[in-house]
Design a protein around this nucleic acid. Sequence first.
DNA 1: CCAAAACGATTACAGCTCTGAACGATTATT
DNA 2: AATAATCGTTCAGAGCTGTAATCGTTTTGG
Lengths: 153, 153
Amino acid sequence: MPLENPPGSAFLLAAVGAHAAARFAERVAALHLTPPQVGLLGLIAAEPGQSQQAVARILGMPPSRLVGLVDSLADRGLVERRRNRADRRLHALHITDEGRAMLARIGKVAHEHDDDLCRSLDEGERETLRALLARIAADQGLRPGVHPGYRHL
Amino acid sequence: MPLENPPGSAFLLAAVGAHAAARFAERVAALHLTPPQVGLLGLIAAEPGQSQQAVARILGMPPSRLVGLVDSLADRGLVERRRNRADRRLHALHITDEGRAMLARIGKVAHEHDDDLCRSLDEGERETLRALLARIAADQGLRPGVHPGYRHL
DNA sequence: CCAAAACGATTACAGCTCTGAACGATTATT
DNA sequence: AATAATCGTTCAGAGCTGTAATCGTTTTGG
C-alpha cells in the first residue's frame, strides 16, 4: 500500500518508471547490453569526441566508474578511444560503424518497448503523457536524454 | 541523448521516475529512513498480521533480504514481530503506535514531494497524469501500492 | 505413532558493484 | 625549470545481494 490513498503522482511515476526501466533492461539484455551501456553508447553517438571526464560529468557518475563501462563497449568494437594530438592526456570517445549498427537495433528494441508499455493508451493519450512528462522533466532540471538512474545502476 | 529523438514515453517515464525516486529518498533520509523501509512499513500498516514470507512474496524480494529490513524497523520500535500461537514458525508483522506516528510524518513528506514534483502542472493536468499512469500500471500488472524498485534498492 | 519431508525465519558465505584515494603520464602555471 | 593541476586508470575497502546451509516447528504418510 502506498502512503497515500489513492497514490499520488510521484509514487505512480516512480513505480511505473521503475517497471519501465526493468522491462527495458530485459529487452536489451537480449543484445548482451545493460541500460548504462546503452545510455553511454547513445551519448557518445550524439556528441562524439568528448573526453571521458566530460561524459562522466554529464552522466553524473565518478570517472572511475566510466572506465569499465567504456572498456566493455570498446572490447566489443562499438566504441573507440582516440588519442587527442593537441592534449595527449585526453581520450576522445567515438562510436564505430558497428556501434551505429548496434544503436539501430537498440532503437528498434526501444520502440517495441515503448509500444508495449503504452498499449493501453491511444495515440492522443500517449502524446498527452509525453507532454506532461516533458514539462516535469524540464521543470525539475533534468537534462534531455540523460537517465538519472544510470548513476547508481 | 536518448535512442529516439524526441524521446519516447518509456524513456521519459523511466527518467522522470528515477528522478522522483531519488528526490523522495533524499526527503525520507531526513527521517533516517530508506525507501524500502518506507515501503515495508506502509505494507505492514495496510495489511497487518502477515508472515514475512507472504510480505517477501508481495514485495518480490528474497526472504533473507526482508530479515534485515524488519530488524531495522523493529530496532526502532516502529514494527514488532508477534509469535503466532497456532503456528509458532510464523512471525506475524504488526505496526506499533510509534510506527503509525512515523507513517503520518512520512505521509506529510510524501505530499510535499508530490507537490514539488508536479509544481509545473495545474490540478487538472495532475489528475490526467495520475489517470494515465494508473491505466499503464494496471495494464502492466503492477500491484497497486507496491514499488517494483524496492526489489533492487 | 513415529520417522521423514516440508516449511518459515535466520544465518553464513561467496560474489558482485561502487566509491574514493592513490598513481603515472601529460600539460599549464609561475 | 619546477611546481601545480588535469586526465585516465588502477586498486583496495566497504556495502549489498542472492544462494545455500541451519534451526525450530509442523505436516505428512506409512
